[in-house]
Design a protein around this nucleic acid. Structure first.
Lengths: 133, 133
DNA sequence: TGATTGTACTATATTGTATAGTACAATCAG
DNA sequence: CTGATTGTACTATACAATATAGTACAATCA
């Protein structure tokens, strides 16, 4: 079906859910208005506690990626974000810097870095067959 | 002088030290053979416990970025890494994917993404005036 | 009404992070 | 050799983040 979490990973499970949902939206596998799995159902599917899933969903709502409606369910937001974009772009820029520093430490040339960058761009642009959600 | 840590940040202080040292090496402000601050001195400078700094240094040594010599001090490694590069490149690729998904969620166009990417590359290439170390 | 769904608690356990203090070992300058 | 410096290695402690478990409540809808 869809999302997988890695229990052994160092990144928290609720964070993995957040990342996975965002990725599926980015891939177009989840579209605005789509209804998502209920917290309890996703929890049992992933062998997690429903509170953990709820935490992920609530963070996604805080970021305006999804909308939580009690009694009805969870839906992908129609205008996923827009807000807060300046702050988040600054964070993005910092993340990119850190990424490049690590790449430099791997002695990657600018050409190597560029080609890896483009490869991932292409993978995301056409690869609907993701392995996450 | 050099490195700063943000106590309120969610990223661990020892991790901030690791990132900062790597960045300074990437910038060329720290060169192979350079002697680094002793753990106790850096600890008091940053108002941290010496064990926290030692942990950061030991992780940097594990990654072969620096060399720790008891009684003498800490030195930037002459051949900083090379090892383990395949695994680390895979991690890098994953990080890049996550980054691009986030960028997509900020509704950044490929052109915007590219220009941010290049801006950071240039900043790292010529910007000796970093604010970290 | 009854099932489903999100929400909100409390309690508990585990892990990562960081501090504090102490002690030891290797190195080097004097 | 002495003494200071430096990295290393413990123990103990505290705190926060993460996750589980269980329960209960509120809104929605068939």
């Amino acid at each position: 079906m869809w999302l997988r979490v890695d229990t052994r990973s160092h990144t928290p499970m609720y964070q993995q859910i957040i990342d996975g949902v965002k990725e599926q939206i980015a891939r177009g596998n989840l579209k605005p208005g789509d209804r998502m799995m209920p917290v309890r159902e996703l929890a049992t599917t992933l062998s997690l506690n429903h509170n953990t899933v709820a935490k992920a969903y609530q963070e996604l709502e805080r970021e305006q990626v999804i909308e939580l409606i009690r009694g009805r369910g969870t839906f992908v937001s129609s205008q996923s974000e827009v807000i807060d974009s300046e702050n988040r772009k600054r964070e993005l820029r910092d993340a990119m810097k850190k990424w490049l520093v690590d790449a430099h430490h791997l002695q990657m040339s600018e050409e190597e870095i560029m080609s890896m960058f483009h490869a991932v761009v292409v993978e995301l642009r056409e690869g609907k067959g993701g392995d996450m959600l």
